[in-house]
């Protein structure tokens, strides 16, 4: 890697000649990349800057940035019991959904990697939740678990179970649990996809070799499948942490953070602060906290993929 950095300027120099030759040089490459970069910097880069600014300044309800206030917004946020509660709940939410997702996804991926009748159909059904808007999923589930008219109680009652009018979302613990289960449900397709990609990349000959070497199938699972699948699991883990941490529609639509903020997570807290209460400085401070956490995850992800890439190069 350091070697490439050293040689880079000279490379650019020799490539500079080529523009005359009809092989476009780096300038032309930059022109091709420019629109993409411009769009990204304008729409993502500028808001980042704006949010950082708002988090450090006193901001009026209408969004007028007044004087510099240092870390006052952060102090206010950290003094807000709802913020702290939301932060705690974010940890529970992220850990439970990600752990649950991996726990469910690994066996499903292993099964879907087997050769059986109707595998394509099974794969399609497993991936189905990915195709549907999280917002719509949340709406449908909100109806499914509706106490009075929902299809869940209807089915349970038909099976003779005493859930005639059980209001699933009225109790905060139960509501949060249901949201976590739905979070798992919608994260499984993406995770299974990554794991299946990993499984299909394991050459069949490895299993044949280990079978010839006399390994039983449970042993070849421990000595071949698991180690080779591990990097994919790591990546699925980190990406899921990022996605779940960021996930907004399920909680927003099903319970709106309620009852009594007991299902709020940071992202719904930030949204409420900004668009319901008009506390833009507070919202910006909350956003910055989230942004910092996300950056750490992103760097972990980069580190993981680079390490993996380096291994693949050997």
């Amino acid at each position: 890697m350091p070697g490439i950095e050293k040689t880079a300027p000279r490379r650019a120099l020799s490539a500079g000649r080529s523009s005359k030759m009809g092989l476009p040089g780096p300038a032309f490459a930059l022109i091709l990349i420019a629109p993409c970069l411009l769009l990204s910097v304008a729409v993502i880069g500028y808001p980042i800057f704006d949010v950082i600014r708002m988090s450090l300044f006193d901001v009026s309800r209408t969004g007028v940035v007044r004087e510099f206030s240092g870390l006052a917004n952060f102090a206010k946020a950290f003094a807000d019991p709802v913020f702290l509660q939301a932060a705690r709940q974010t940890v529970i939410w992220t850990v439970c959904v990600v752990a649950g997702t991996l726990l469910v996804s690994v066996p499903i991926a292993l099964i879907l990697n087997e050769d059986f009748y109707g595998r394509t159909i099974a794969r399609t059904i497993v991936l189905l939740p990915w195709a549907i808007s999280l917002a719509m999923t949340a709406v449908v589930w909100r109806y499914v678990v509706n106490g009075d008219f929902g299809t869940l109680n209807m089915t349970l009652a038909a099976l003779g179970l005493p859930f005639e009018n059980y209001p699933w979302l009225a109790d905060a613990r139960m509501a949060f649990l249901i949201e976590i289960l739905i979070g798992i449900l919608v994260s499984v397709p993406f995770t299974v996809t990554i794991l299946l990609g990993g499984l299909t990349s394991i050459p069949e000959s490895l299993y044949e070799a280990s079978a010839i070497d006399g390994a039983a199938s449970t042993r070849s699972f421990y000595y071949i499948t698991l180690p080779l699948l591990w990097p994919f699991m790591q990546i699925a883990l980190v990406l899921n942490v990022i996605y779940v941490f960021n996930s907004f529609p399920i909680i927003w639509i099903m319970t709106n953070g309620g009852p009594a903020n007991r299902t709020d997570i940071l992202i719904t807290y930030v949204y409420k602060q900004a668009f319901a209460f008009g506390k833009l400085g507070n919202a910006a401070a909350g956003s910055m906290v989230m942004f910092a956490i996300l950056l750490v995850f992103a760097i972990v992800y980069l580190f993981l993929t680079r390490a993996q890439g380096a291994k693949n190069d050997d």
């Binding site: 941490f245 956003s287 942004f291 992103a298």
Partner: peptide, 15 residues
Amino acid sequence: LITQMISPIVLIVGL
């Protein structure tokens, strides 16, 4: 890659 990991909602106020 990093832009892909930032949820729009984190930046929604700025956006």
